[in-house]
Design a protein around this nucleic acid. Structure first.
Lengths: 232, 232
DNA sequence: GCAAAAGTGTTAACTTTACACCCATGT
DNA sequence: ACATGGGTGTAAAGTTAACACTTTTGC
C-alpha cells in the first residue's frame, strides 16, 4: 500500500477529472500514472490540489492540462468527495468534474512531472485506482448515462459533419445497449435539429452515408423554452 | 455591505443546506438569521465550516442541527461552490446539500449562537441572502424539480397514510403547475406501489378520501432493476 | 340544500417498439 | 459477385392528454 510516513497537510481541497473519450468505437477513460507519493506509480484519474487564489473550475482545467496536455475542454462538476480518510496525507475534499471528448490516440503528454504518462483505458474495465478514484469514476459514468437521456451529448464528440450512424454509436457506447437503426433515426430527425447536407462519405466500400450537422443555436433557444433533446 | 476588516482564514471548506419544507399547501425554504460576521443579521441558508476530522455528510447534519434544531434529515449533496471571492474572509469552498421535509410551524430553535433564529420562507420569493446563497438555493430548486421526475419524492413528506390529493399537491407545489386529477391518479396507481387502505378521512366537510400507503420495500427492489417512478 | 372535495371512463393523439429488405460502393 | 454498411415504412401496443359529472360529508 502506498501510504507511508508522509507529512500531514492542513485541510485542503483538490479537483479530479474523469475524462471520457470516444472514437467511433469504444468509450474509454483517461488515466494517468502517478509520479508522486502518495500512490506513486498507481493509476489514477488526473487531479491535484487547488491553489489558494484559484477558482475551482479553473483549477480543474489547469490540473487536467498539467497532467495530460489536454486543454479547452468543457468540464462539468458532478460531485464532491469528502470522507475523512480518502487521502492518506491529511484531510482533502475533492470536487470532481467530468467531460466526454473525441479521442485520438496521439497527444497525451503530461506537462508537469506529477504524472509519468497519460493514456486511455476501456470504461467497462477500469483497474484498481489510487485514492477513492474508482468510486469517482463510477459516479461519473452514472452521471454521463443519466445526462444523455436529456441533453444532446453526442455533438461534442463528432466532427461538424457527421453521419447518423456515428451518432448512434455514441448512444450505444454510453448507454451500453443496441439501438434499432430505424427508430433511432426517426427519433433524432423528429427534433428538427439535424440538417442533412448535400455531401456524402467518400471512399467507403459500401453505400455512402449522408452527412448531417447539428443546429446548435436553434437547440439553445428551444432548450430555454423547456425543450428536451434526449434518448432514454 | 457586511464585508469588513476581518481576519483571513486559510483555505477551508464549509457545508450549506437548502431545506425545502412542505405542509400540504406551499413549498418553503428554511432560512436562518445570522448572528455572526460576516453578513451578521443577514438571512442565509444554514451552513458552517467543516471540522478537520469530520466527514462532510456528517458536517452537513451537524450544522443543520446547530443552526435550526432539525436532525435525522436525509441530506443529499447536489453541488459545490468555489468562486475565489464567495466568502469575504478568505477562500472557502462550500459543498451544498438539500432535502425536503414535512413542515410544521413549531420547533425551529437554533442550538448554537451562530443563528439568531430560523424560519420558513416561501420558495417562490426568496429575499437577498448572504454570500452566494441565492445561487445555491436556485440550483437546489432546479435539482429538486428535476429529481421529482424520476424518483418518488413525495412519500417522505407525507404521513404513512395519505390521500392521493395530498400526494398530488406535492407534485403541483414542486413542479409549479396544475395536474389533472384523473390522469394523476391513474398514473400513480399504475405503478402498483400504492396500497389502498380500508380507512377514510374523518370529520371533513366533504366526501371522505381513502388513505393509501406507499410500498417502499417493493419500490426499492424494482428500482434496482431499473424501474423509474416519476412524473414529468 | 349548499359548498367542498372525492371519485370515476372514454376517446383521440401521440409515442414507442418490433421487424426485413433493397441500395450504393469498393474490392 | 460479394461484402459492407446505408437507407427506408408499417402496424400494433402503449402512453398521454383532454375533458364533466356524480358521490359523500358537514354545516
Amino acid at each position: 500500500m502506498a501510504k507511508g510516513n508522509l507529512p500531514k497537510l492542513h485541510s485542503d481541497f483538490s479537483v479530479d477529472c474523469v475524462i471520457f473519450g470516444f472514437d467511433d468505437e469504444e468509450l474509454k477513460v483517461l488515466l494517468v500514472e502517478r509520479n508522486e507519493p502518495p500512490f506513486k506509480a498507481w493509476k489514477a484519474i488526473p487531479g491535484n490540489l487547488v491553489y489558494d487564489q484559484e477558482d475551482i473550475d479553473a483549477a480543474a482545467e489547469r490540473v487536467l492540462y498539467e497532467l495530460t496536455g489536454l486543454h479547452n475542454i468543457f468540464l462539468e462538476q458532478f460531485y464532491s468527495f469528502g470522507s475523512i480518510d480518502r487521502h492518506p496525507q491529511g484531510r482533502v475534499i475533492t470536487v470532481a468534474y467530468y467531460s466526454i471528448i473525441k479521442r485520438n490516440d496521439n497527444g497525451l503528454h503530461p506537462v508537469s512531472g506529477y504524472a509519468k504518462k497519460a493514456y486511455w483505458w476501456p470504461a467497462d474495465n477500469i483497474p484498481k485506482l489510487a485514492f477513492d478514484h474508482n468510486e469517482i469514476v463510477d459516479k461519473a459514468l452514472q452521471t454521463l448515462r443519466h445526462k444523455i437521456s436529456y441533453e444532446p451529448i453526442g455533438f461534442e464528440l463528432l466532427p461538424e459533419k457527421f453521419t447518423l450512424t456515428q451518432l448512434q454509436h455514441i448512444y450505444e457506447a454510453i448507454l451500453q445497449k443496441r439501438i434499432d437503426k430505424r427508430n433511432f433515426r426517426r427519433k433524432m430527425l423528429s427534433y428538427g435539429l439535424l440538417t442533412e447536407l448535400n455531401q456524402k462519405q467518400k471512399g467507403v466500400s459500401h453505400r455512402a452515408a449522408s452527412f448531417f450537422k447539428f443546429n446548435k443555436s436553434r437547440y439553445r433557444s428551444l432548450k430555454k423554452k423547456g425543450f428536451i433533446f434526449g434518448l432514454r
